[in-house]
């Protein structure tokens, strides 16, 4: 058995499919590609596939990771080629490398960066300055929904970079870099908190989040 780590993209066409849907897509693609996947032991064996932190439904990515344990001697290059032949359009593997079978993806992933686009409800003056003032705060407390109810989280401790890239009429584009881990907030939490800070200038009915990279340790 060997573990192949793949970096993949998820584009506009498939941005509404959930994490669970994606798992099924990969399982079925592996079967179409006729790649033999390793199964877990136990009463209800399941294929050994694992993903990094789930991407929000509605977001796109060009740098997410997954691990697949294979039961055959297939090279990373061949794995990539065979999978890309059968994956639905919008999902593509861009890079594959072998890692140790004890190397767990979730403990490797430290952070990610994003491009975030929002629509403005009203004109905002000094948006760039506002971002800077926001980033200069010591703590940014937000309420985050968890399975056990609402919880207070310090967003600032996760936030590494946040700046305005571009403002063009009704659209504003930001760069965001955040730590990723169990229960970490996502860029939408940041958008909500920042929108509150500047007095509700964003139309958060719609926004675009694109994950550029996941950072592995």
């Amino acid at each position: 058995m060997k573990r192949l780590r793949s970096k993949y993209t998820k584009g506009e066409e498939v941005k509404f499919i959930s994490h669970l849907d994606l798992l099924r897509v990969i399982q079925r693609a592996l079967r179409r590609a006729d790649i033999k996947v390793a199964f877990s032991q136990g009463f209800n064996p399941h294929p050994r596939i694992s993903f990094g932190p789930a991407l929000m439904v509605g977001a796109t990515t060009e740098g997410d990771y997954m691990d697949v344990d294979v039961e055959e001697d297939i090279s990373p290059h061949e794995f990539k080629e065979r999978m890309n032949e059968v994956l639905p359009s919008g999902i593509k593997i861009v890079e594959v490398f072998e890692v140790d079978v004890r190397d767990s993806l979730s403990s490797r992933i430290k952070g990610a960066d994003y491009l975030v686009e929002v629509f403005l409800k009203k004109e905002v003056e000094g948006l760039e300055e506002a971002v800077k003032r926001f980033m200069a705060k010591d703590t940014i407390e937000i309420e985050k929904e968890t399975k056990k109810g609402k919880k207070l989280v310090d967003l600032k401790s996760y936030l590494e970079e946040f700046y305005l890239i571009d403002m063009n009429g009704e659209r504003a584009k930001f760069y965001v870099k955040m730590k990723l881990g169990e229960g970490s907030p996502n860029p939408f939490h940041l958008l909500k908190a920042f929108n509150e800070y500047i007095g509700d200038a964003f139309d958060l009915e719609y926004y675009k989040i694109h994950r550029k990279n996941m950072f592995l340790e």
Partner: peptide, 22 residues
């Protein structure tokens, strides 16, 4: 497209409407 996407972000099971399946 953005308009439709903005609706899809609010509905249950958005992939009912997106197509693009294998």
């Amino acid at each position: 497209k953005e308009k439709v996407d903005s609706l899809l972000m609010k509905v249950s099971k958005p992939t009912r409407y997106t197509g693009g399946e294998l």
